[in-house]
Amino acid sequence: MTAVLALIALATIGTAAAAMTRRSLLHSVLLLTGSWVGVAAFYLWAGAEFAAFAQVLIYVGAISMALLFAVLLTRRSREDFAPGPASRGRALYAILAGAALAGVLLAAIARGSLAVAPSPVPTVTVRQLGGQLMGPHAASLLVVGVLLTVALIGAVVLAAGTGPGKPGDAP
């Protein structure tokens, strides 16, 4: 069990780290998609089939597509990626910050009392989930629905720009 978990963790973190360091945006996105698949595998491992399903559908399916489109639409900006002294300094700083964060968190985990008895994998059926969503969490479900609608409309408005009538409007 633990070995499987370790494997999943290594694969996920590995792909994520690779995605963050690659020069090519396209490669980054594809690698990150692999990392999301790893997260979905973790959900499966933990018994949350539905969450895994949602993860695959939304991240691997939808968000990665949107990202790919965004990458392709903004292609001309690739020449900006030449690493300069400023970006090297920033990278150093970022690695420092990330390492500090990871160190603090891992130290906390090691010191904390998270040792629990091994327990069987919990099961949750989609019917139970539906009951919960439509019952006690119905209000949040509605709010999330509204949020998604607003985000969709907002995204369309933002991306639509000033309209076809005035192409020279953008500075």
């Binding site: 990330g98 964060l101 603090v104 906390a108």
Partner: peptide, 20 residues
């Protein structure tokens, strides 16, 4: 984002050393 990260690390350290 950097300020956030630093603040987070500092807070976590405080919790870890002091308030734990």
């Amino acid at each position: 984002l950097r300020a956030l990260a630093v603040a987070f690390v500092v807070l976590a350290l405080l919790a870890l050393l002091g308030g734990g």
